[in-house]
Structure formats: structure tokens, C-alpha cells
Write a protein that binds this DNA or RNA. Structure first.
Lengths: 196, 196
DNA sequence: AAAGAAAACTAATAAACGTTAGTTTTGCAT
DNA sequence: ATGCAAAACTAACGTTTATTAGTTTTCTTT
């Protein structure tokens, strides 16, 4: 049936994309060759093209898949009825969890997007800017409601985003500390600092 | 005289390295060709090799130059006599300032180091791990002295490092807020959080 | 002015790259 | 079993890459 076949194909395409993500993360987009990817998949390089359109397509399917997950989650948070602090904690928590769960893909979306081709590049950056603006709006609301200290909302947001996006540092030495502890620790520090 | 000549050569080499950093930052190490770099310098590609050994050499001179600046500063902080909180604030402040001052090179050291060749790669990573451990030691001391909340020192350090390393986000939209504000805002948030 | 070194140039090389074309194998539906 | 589409293969392509060799120009020193 056409349906099953297309499902299978989508699945195979996804497998390739996930293996591509692990290579793109480890070596970077440009330093990853289609022959290496093919090796990892267990196939000749040219055979990949039965399932994908191009190397670039792999990159942008990874980037937009992740970008969309963040966008969808943000919409949920915006429609929830917690206060601003609760919303920000929710977002931080989501960032940490998705980073730990889909590390390769999130890493690629965070670090290899610059190799996207137009118009995907502009598209991606617009989506990101919009995401940041909506986070800033949450902070501004929190300040208005006296839940958040009266600082510059962009600084607060960029600090949070930098911290959670840089979580790759963490991945290197995650042996000693549980995800649970990590999540709690980061939220605590970003919300209340480290001073006693 | 030999001395002047070698000084001139070092200068020219540095100029090339700085221009290389701006390209490596914008396009990534692998996506930057020696022909592009030569264009930027105003010379043919092969002429670059009168001043540098190889493309790889450019990358590792950038990475280690920056790594050494951080190492030297850390040693100064360790030998200073402030308390742990003061030391950490000092380090955060240094990260922000050097990021703003030598943005391209710091960015490259933070994001393109994976393209270093051995043994420079191992060397670089060792230096980084050592840097992180020494920061963790400062936090541990602060906890012992009841200056810092009783959390996991690695989480505190990784959160701080992620936040300051991710400062590139900032660079995109630095129009509205001064460096002074940025530095104060980040230090405030990382030390005391954003909750009122 | 002459000499010598430093740094530019042109030209070429060998390797690696993404991708296409054409062919053969595989696996499911009749 | 037969037929057909999906997906594998081999081979090759045109580019682009970093780098080297050899030559000429430019600059500095005597």
C-alpha cells in the first residue's frame, strides 16, 4: 500500500537524519562527508539519494524539526495560566530536557544552522528572533507584575538562553550528576543565583 | 636587522590570524577557503604561505592565544585575596569583557576547536578541563565558607560558563544596551537570580 | 647603484567532495 | 512464478580544496 511504503520511507529518512545529526555534531556539517554518513548507515553514498534530496536538506530538516518543537512548547506556555516566573522555569526545564533527550539534533540546530541555505537560513533566524522576543515579553510582564527584578529583559533572556544552550559542556561530564539534579540546580541558579 | 624583520613578520602573521578568525567565525573553519582568506588579506592564496605554515596552524594559534589569556587571568584571580564570590564575579566579568573585545577569536576558540589536529586537540581540551576544575574548586571553597549556596559546584560552574560563552547571541542585538549594563546585568542574574 | 632577502605572483597537482547516470539486486503484490 | 517498484550497487562527472614549485617583483641594506 502506498501509505505503508511512504511511512517506511519517512522512517528510513528519519534514521538517516538522526545518524547525520550525530556526525554533524561530532565533526561539523562541512567536515562530514556523504561517504562517512553512508558508512554509518551501512550503504554506499549514492544510495542515500534514494531517500534524501541532498546534504543540505538533511541539515534543514534537523534544524526545523527542533525549532518547531521549541515553538510549539512556547505556545503552550503562553496559553498556560501560571505567573511569569513559573513560565520561565517551565521553559528552562523544557530546554534542559530536550537537550538531554535529543542532544545531537539540538546541538546541530544550535551550532550548525549557519550552514543552512537560503531561504531556510533567513527563515530559521526569523523563527529564532521571534522566539526570543516572545520570551522577552514574558519577562517584561513579570517585571510589570513585580515578580521579577527590574532589569533589562533582554539581558535576562539572553543569559538564560545562553546557559541552557551551552549545556553541551555538561554532556561531557554528566557521569556524576543526575538529570534531575542538573535541572533543579540550573533553575535554582538562574532564578535565585548562587549567593547565600 | 633580524630582530625587526621577525617582529614585522609576526605582525603580518597576526593580521592574517585575525582576519582568519573573522572568517572562521562567520563561516566555520572548514567552510572557509584559503582563497577567501587571501582575498580578505588582499593577496593570492599561495602568498599566505610565506607567513603561515598551514590553515590548521592558523586555527591553533587562535585557539591557544585565547586559551592562554583565560589561564593567565585565572592564575591572577587565584592569587588574589577576595572571597570566593568576588573571585567568581571577577571571572564572569573577565569573560564578558574579553568576549566583547576579541569577539571573533573567542568565538572561534569556543566553537571551532573541534577542528584542531592532534596533538593540539587533546592539549586544548586538557587545558579547558583544567580551567573548569579550578573554577569548581573556587565554588567548593565558597560553599565551605558559607558564602555560596550548598549546591553541586559543577552545575554552578557549567551554568556560568555556558552563560558567558553563549554571549554571541548578545552580539547580534547589542544595539540597545551598553556593555556596562550587560556586564552588571549578567553578574547580578548569575549571582542573585532574577526573582524579586 | 647593486645585492640579497622577503614576499608577491602564476601554474599545477593530487585528493576529496556532492551528486548523477545507468545498472543490478531485493522484496512485496498479484 | 511473474512483474514492478524500491533501493541497492558501480562508475564517473565536474568542482573545489589546501598546498607546492618555480619565477618575478618589491623592499631593505650596503
Amino acid at each position: 500500500m502506498a501509505k505503508i511504503k511512504s511511512t517506511n520511507k519517512a522512517t528510513k529518512k528519519e534514521v538517516i537524519a538522526i545518524k547525520a545529526a550525530s556526525l554533524f555534531k561530532a565533526k561539523g556539517f562541512n567536515a562530514t562527508s556523504m561517504r562517512e554518513l553512508a558508512d554509518l548507515v551501512g550503504v554506499e553514498a549514492s544510495s542515500l539519494y534514494n531517500h534524501i534530496g541532498s546534504k543540505s536538506e538533511l541539515l534543514h530538516s534537523i534544524c526545523f524539526k527542533i525549532a518547531n518543537e521549541f515553538t510549539v512548547h512556547l505556545a503552550q506556555v503562553e496559553n498556560s495560566n501560571g505567573n511569569s516566573v513559573k513560565k520561565l522555569q517551565d521553559i528552562i526545564s523544557f530546554h534542559i530536557r530536550i537537550m538531554l533527550k535529543k542532544f545531537d539534533e539540538v546541538f546541530v540546530a544550535n551550532h550548525e544552522w549557519k550552514h543552512l541555505q537560503e531561504p531556510y537560513l533567513s527563515n530559521f533566524l526569523n523563527q529564532r528572533r521571534s522566539y526570543e522576543k516572545r520570551l522577552i515579553a514574558i519577562v517584561s510582564e513579570g517585571i510589570k507584575n513585580k515578580e521579577i527584578i527590574n532589569g533589562e529583559p533582554p539581558i535576562i533572556i539572553f543569559t538564560i538562553l545562553s546557559a541552557v544552550r551551552g549545556l553541551e559542556l555538561w554532556h561531557r561530564s554528566k557521569k556524576n550528576i543526575s538529570e534531575q539534579n542538573l535541572e533543579e540546580g540550573m533553575i535554582t541558579q538562574l532564578t535565585t543565583g548562587f549567593i547565600k
